[in-house]
């Protein structure tokens, strides 16, 4: 998508997070948007292969990563998710 928008304003806003304390017992909460036909299938395969991986990742299946909307990602962050990745 267009890169134009993020130019000048970025510098002014408090763009870099202040380093802050991490409360005890905090675990990263991560959301993965996965394409049904590639990444979701890969995740499925990882399961079938009995691979163990980080339990912090919650997967949301999309019919295609093209279904992803900016607002989905923003809503996730708004609800306090710590990281989002899109896989397709």
């Amino acid at each position: 998508m267009d890169k134009v928008v993020q130019s000048s304003e970025q510098a002014k806003a408090p763009s870099i997070e202040k380093s802050h304390e991490t409360p005890e017992g905090w675990e990263p909460n991560i959301l993965a948007f996965a394409c049904h036909y590639c990444a979701f299938a890969a995740a499925d395969l990882a399961g079938v292969m009995r691979l163990s991986y980080s339990p912090n990742v919650k997967i949301i299946r999309l019919p295609c990563t093209g279904k992803l909307d900016q607002i989905y990602v923003l809503r996730a962050f708004e609800k306090g998710i710590d990281g989002v990745f899109v896989a397709g």
């Binding site: 990444a39 890969a42 995740a43 395969l45 990882a46 691979l51 899109v86």
Partner: peptide
């Protein structure tokens, strides 16, 4: 905090990684 990855359906181990 936002990232995009590309992988195919055959890449189970890559997914875990």
């Amino acid at each position: 905090r936002l990232e995009m990855f590309n992988l195919s359906a055959a890449m189970g181990p890559r997914w875990a990684e």
